[in-house]
Amino acid sequence: MVAASLPPETPAPYVENLPVAPTIAPDSLSTDLTQNRIEVSSSFQGAKVILYGAVFQPKDQPSDVVVIIRGPRASMRLIRKTQVAGLWLNSRPVVFEGAPGYYMAASSQPLDRITDFSHRRLLGLGLDYIAMDTSRENKVVTRYGVKDVVVNGLESDYLDWRRAVIRLKTKAGLYEDNPLGVRFVDQNLFRAEVTLPSEAPIGDYTAEVWLFRNGQPVGYSEKTMTVEKVGFERFVFNVAHRHAWLYGLACVAMSMGMGALASRLFRRG
């Protein structure tokens, strides 16, 4: 939520772990965004950004394009409702860390047809492979006689929790899998639409574009985009966080002043 409280490192470290990285020729792919700075002003109701790009591909070997947009990382707290003695009560919250505040995977055809499981997992392609962890649930135990084994306290429930995060975020319009989101305008030119709802988190976004041929990544391009508050919105936010006392007093003064004004106006009227 608050951009300043996020860890300073930039997302998407996935490229480094990639076993096939050396074979990627970056010049086979060229991309850009129609906007790399999105201004959130009082009339902001979400934004639509077009990512377009060109691939240099031989006619007999058509390639697939996958576009991954990641918003700033934010930790999330998830609660599960459980029925106890007829009442629906809340469980202890589980904290998910490292998941992006916004995520969109657009591709030229369904991801499982583009590449195999290990690539999807490694590169974080698709909602099922978003990296997020619940490290605060981890505990050290002794298993099968081995000491200091780190296990997740959620055990087999972990998948339910994870799926719930994705379901809730998708419902809010912040996560999306769009298997047909990348459209080839002609043989070499493609485009993908990125829809940001008005609830989209403020901060830095990355657009990763992967080029796949025969299930192997052969091209990669990365662009960045910033969503930031401007003008009045920025001013209010900054004052509220940097001069909280002043802001609180100003809000109180505004409220009481308007109340007093109204009572005065109505007395005369």
């Binding site: 608050v2 609180g248 100003a250 809000c251 505004m254 109340g259």
Partner: peptide, 24 residues
């Protein structure tokens, strides 16, 4: 209200303004 603004940063002045214009 002041406590909420200082402790939790949860007072939205714009929302408060719209609500209170109608409210008064």
């Amino acid at each position: 209200m002041i406590l909420q603004a200082v402790r939790n940063h949860t007072v939205d002045g714009v929302l408060a303004f719209i609500l209170l214009i109608g409210g008064v």
